[in-house]
Computed example of a mutant assay.
Amino acid sequence: MRRKINDYNLSPYVKQFKLIAGQFIVPITIFQTVRTLIFPSPVDLVLLALLILLGVALYMEWI
């Protein structure tokens, strides 16, 4: 059985990183989406997929 990570046990630096990443992930993802639509390349598609997965993971509190 997988144990849920307790936010109270995290260091303050990790908590701060999660807050900052949560604020910046949406604008960076939107920018990357526009860039991918204008100049599509395999690297852009992979980066966009990673950003979307990171955004969903932060939103669903998987990280």
Rank of each mutant, 00 (worst) to 15 (best):
R2D: 02
R3C: 02
K4L: 15
K4H: 10
I5Y: 06
Y8V: 04
Y8Q: 11
N9E: 15
N9T: 15
S11M: 06
S11L: 07
P12N: 06
P12S: 06
P12R: 06
V14R: 13
K15W: 01
K15V: 09
K15A: 05
Q16F: 14
K18D: 09
K18W: 07
L19Y: 13
I20T: 14
A21D: 03
G22T: 09
G22R: 06
Q23G: 08
F24S: 13
I25T: 05
I25H: 01
P27E: 04
P27C: 05
P27Q: 04
P27Y: 03
I30K: 04
I30Y: 04
F31N: 02
F31H: 01
Q32G: 01
T33R: 02
R35V: 10
T36K: 02
T36Q: 11
L37P: 02
L37K: 01
L37D: 00
I38H: 07
I38K: 13
S41L: 02
S41K: 05
P42V: 08
D44S: 15
L45C: 08
L47E: 00
L48G: 05
L48F: 09
L50V: 13
L51C: 03
L53A: 15
G55Q: 09
V56F: 06
A57R: 08
A57K: 08
A57E: 04
L58T: 02
M60I: 06
M60E: 13
E61R: 15
E61M: 01
W62P: 00
